[in-house]
Amino acid sequence: MSDEVRPPIAAAVIVRDGKVLLVKRRVKEGSLSWQFPAGEVEAGETGSQAAVREAKEETGLTVAEVKVLGERVHPNTGRTMIYVACDVVEGEASVVDDEELVEVAWSDGKQITEYVPYPFYGPVQEHLDATLSS
């Protein structure tokens, strides 16, 4: 096991018209296959900048940070996660990074457990409860 500190992962929690954007990873991370657009924070970047960049690189969407929802060590992956609420500025979501992703989906509050059958981190769930249509 390496002592090297791995950079945190920034996740873009993108809600538009009462639905949240989820991406399906080509390779599962633990039990995770559907998740938010996300990736490692690069040197010199904030978590918010990384979330915005990753959304663009993975889905083609231009998004803007609304607020950081919270940070935690993910119980399944052991990685530090930074969750950033984002609004769509322009574009339509699609699979841009086809090496990492196989599908994108917009989910409302009722459908979300079909994609993600486990509970979200508390502050993320509160944000989704407040912004998703049921």
Rank of each mutant, 00 (worst) to 15 (best):
A85P: 12
A105L: 08
R6F: 06
A38F: 00
T113P: 09
R53Y: 07
A43D: 11
E29S: 13
V124P: 00
A105H: 15
E4L: 06
V96R: 10
P8N: 02
T113K: 15
R79T: 01
I112E: 03
L69Q: 02
S33E: 15
S134T: 11
S107H: 04
L61M: 10
V73D: 06
I112S: 01
G91N: 04
S133F: 01
T113F: 09
V20E: 00
A10M: 08
G109P: 04
L32Y: 08
R79H: 09
I82F: 04
E4S: 12
A64E: 15
A51C: 06
V88T: 07
Q125F: 08
K19W: 04
E45T: 01
P119D: 12
K56L: 15
G70E: 03
E57Y: 13
R25S: 07
G109L: 11
L69M: 05
T59C: 06
E114W: 03
E40M: 05
G47M: 05
P123D: 06
E58R: 03
P119R: 07
V116M: 03
D3E: 12
L69G: 12
V102I: 15
A51G: 03
E45P: 00
P75A: 09
K24H: 08
V20C: 07
I112R: 02
A43N: 08
I9L: 06
T131Y: 01
V15H: 01
A85S: 11
V95H: 14
I9N: 04
H127N: 05
V20W: 08
E4F: 11
R72V: 11
M1P: 07
W34S: 04
K24G: 15
S33R: 14
E103S: 08
L69A: 15
W106D: 02
R72C: 12
Y121V: 03
T113W: 13
E54W: 14
Q35C: 11
V5T: 13
E114Q: 12
D87Y: 04
T77C: 07
E126M: 12
G44V: 03
A10W: 00
V124N: 02
L32M: 11
E103A: 15
S33N: 14
H127Y: 13
D17R: 10
G109R: 01
T80P: 06
V73H: 09
K24N: 12
S94N: 05
G91E: 07
V95F: 12
L22W: 09
E126L: 11
E42C: 12
E92K: 08
A55I: 09
G44A: 02
P75L: 10
A130D: 13
P8I: 02
R16D: 09
V104M: 09
A10E: 06
L21R: 00
E57V: 14
T59E: 06
T113H: 14
P37T: 11
V88W: 08
E57N: 12
T59P: 03
V102A: 03
V5C: 06
A85Q: 06
A105C: 13
T77K: 13
S31K: 13
V95I: 05
Y121H: 14
A55Q: 02
E45Q: 15
G91A: 14
A105Q: 10
V68Q: 14
L128V: 02
A130R: 15
H74T: 01
